[in-house]
Every structure is written in structure tokens, then in C-alpha cells.
Write a protein that binds this DNA or RNA. Sequence first.
DNA 1: TACATTTACGCTGCGCGTAATCATG
DNA 2: CATGATTACGCGCAGCGTAAATGTA
Lengths: 97, 97
Amino acid sequence: MDIQFFQTFLIVAKLGNMTQAAEMLNFTQPTITGQIRTLEQHFGVKLFDRVGKKLYITDAGKKLINYSERLLSVYNEAQEELSIHPESKFRHCNNNG
Amino acid sequence: MDIQFFQTFLIVAKLGNMTQAAEMLNFTQPTITGQIRTLEQHFGVKLFDRVGKKLYITDAGKKLINYSERLLSVYNEAQEELSIHPESKFRHCNNNG
DNA sequence: TACATTTACGCTGCGCGTAATCATG
DNA sequence: CATGATTACGCGCAGCGTAAATGTA
């Protein structure tokens, strides 16, 4: 499981919109769909309810938000401490390091 | 960056031996080398000093042990809470959840 | 019709194993 | 020569983008 997928999930969850998440992350819309689907299949849970165009996060999704934040926080912290020049891909979402 | 690589790193660091790590993780020796190398290149640091056949973990490596443990801990916790039947690939190393 | 997500599909690159090579004791 | 790490190399598949399809307002 790539750490990137958790970042994607966080952005989608917070924006409630895959299109905007795709733009923010410099991916395409179908790629976002695929990444979310990969997470859902991996954990065996549905992360969003798709009602029309709207995304409603599920209870499992809400839980994963917390884990994703912690995961990325640790990852970013590692990058910042180990690397002199971290890639900083996820820093905009690291709000508890 | 795949979460698996952190697990591999932890095992190698604790065993001080890539061959044994490969056996434990059901990978081959060259695969372990590649995964460690990927981590080293990604973070831009050397994780082990190779002196003959011996591996000596570097200061950066020692730091990454801590981050890897925390990362896998969060990941396993997520799996255990979200999935009814987690894959449990990393449970044998999750000692602080 | 406009907009957002999903599906279909081909392609590229990463990561794997096998085999060969290097290096130490 | 035995053992362990690395390098070389080919292959398979995961994940990407483009294009088409589906579904709502």
C-alpha cells in the first residue's frame, strides 16, 4: 500500500470532491477513483457513499481520516528529520507535527 | 513509497542480516537489497554501513527505526479497526499498539 | 446540457525473482 | 570454498492518463 493513497484519501475526504482533489494533487479524475477504490478493497470497507454527484464519507471513512493523518504525520516527520531537503509532497496536510 | 519497505527495513535492522530478513518476509535476498536501496535513495541517507558481510546501522537508520515502528503501528491499528479480517502481514512487529 | 464519477483500455515503470558477480572469512 | 550483499536482466502487474460511458440535476 502506497502512502500516497492515504494523502489522496484525506484530500478527497476534506473536499468531498474527487475532481478538486485531482487538481490539487496533479492527478486525473479517474486516477483518484482508482486510488480510493484500492483503499476500499484493501481494507474491505466502503469509504464513501456515492449519492448522485455527492460523496458522503462513511463511518469507516471517518476512522480512516484519523489514521491517515497520523500516518502522514509520522511519514513527514521522518522526511523532515532524515532528509536535508525533503520532497515536502504532503506538508500542506501535516497539521499535527 | 510502499509501507512494506518500512517493515522490511525494520526486520533488516533488527536482524542485522538481509538473508534472514528475506526468509522471514518471503522475499529473496536481492529484493531486500533493492527495498533498502529504495529507502536510502528516497530519504537521501545511508541506512547501513556495509563492512564486509556485516551491516551496521547508521544514525539515520536508528532514527528511521523509530519512525518505521510508529508508521507500522498506525497502519496495523487502522487495519485492525477497519477490516474485520486484517491481512496481519505486519503484526509480528507491532509492539506498541 | 453540464458536471462528477466510473469504466475501458493501452502503456510505462516499478518491483519482483533468477542468475551472475563481488567481497569477506 | 562457503556465505552474504550487490548487480544485471527480463518479466508481470499495478497504476497512470486518455477516451468513452454512466448517472444526476
